[in-house]
Write a protein that binds this DNA or RNA. Structure first.
Length: 225
DNA sequence: TTCCAGCACT
DNA sequence: AGTGCAGGAA
């Protein structure tokens, strides 16, 4: 399978523009303020699944106040867990999953498996969350490859072949190349924020977009007029 | 009505 | 590969 990535020059220009945008317009969230411990980092990512970051920011600190540790989740009634999660949606699945994950974590005395394959055996631990653990806790340049990052990359470069982001080798490779920088954490946040605020799913702000002159999606939209 | 820092189950 | 989950905002 031939997978040709964009040239180093193209990727560097893309990274530079996004980072300079990020330092002016990037979003601030509680889970970005400090170096998080594994518990807080994983909780943040689970709350963020299929949920707008702005919505999560209203609940995140309250969740940590009520459930400050894996143990507190094991000890609580699932209904208590659900009631905190209700404003976010997906609350039954998340409550059940968090319970299962917390029980595993207590089994291992709070120690995460140190390799990716074992990590992904944990409840709720899919490809996205495993990447987040690598990025945030293990300092690896892994991509937070979600619908936002996928949308931006697909518009700017080219569309994926497979329906599922997680199984598309092109998006995997491309996103890894994009965030493979000394400051992978900020590079990831830059992509996510830019995709959420400018390269939006509905009504993208192409006219003010700093990437538009090289963007395949924008060029096509102009051509269509 | 669509969309959102996905995952588990079929 | 397809689908359910789910409340809230645009």
């Amino acid at each position: 399978m031939l997978l040709r990535l964009p040239s180093k020059h193209i990727i560097q220009a893309f990274q530079r523009k996004l980072l300079s945008w990020y330092f002016l317009h990037g979003r601030k969230f509680p889970w970005r303020e400090i170096q998080l411990d594994p518990y807080r980092a994983i909780i943040a990512e689970i709350l963020l699944q299929r949920t707008k970051a702005e919505t999560v920011s209203k609940v995140y600190l309250e969740f940590l106040r009520k459930f400050p540790s894996w143990k507190s989740i094991v000890d609580t009634d699932i209904k208590q867990l659900e009631s905190v999660l209700t404003p976010l949606g997906l609350y039954r699945q998340r409550a059940r999953g968090l319970k299962a994950l917390a029980e595993k974590m207590i089994d291992t005395k709070g120690i995460l498996p140190q390799n990716r394959d074992e990590l992904m055996q944990l409840p709720m631990m899919g490809q996205y969350l495993a990447n987040a653990v690598e990025l945030v806790l293990w300092n690896k340049p892994s991509p937070l490859l979600d619908v936002n990052m996928a949308r931006l990359l697909e518009r700017y470069f080219k569309k994926r072949k497979l329906a599922d982001i997680r199984h598309d080798p092109y998006l995997q490779k491309l996103s890894s190349a994009i965030v493979n920088t000394p400051n992978a954490l900020e590079m990831n946040w830059a992509v996510l924020d830019f995709a959420a605020l400018v390269c939006k799913a509905v009504k993208p702000e192409c006219e003010i977009c700093i990437l538009n002159e090289d963007c395949k999606y924008y060029k096509n939209s102009v051509k269509d007029k």
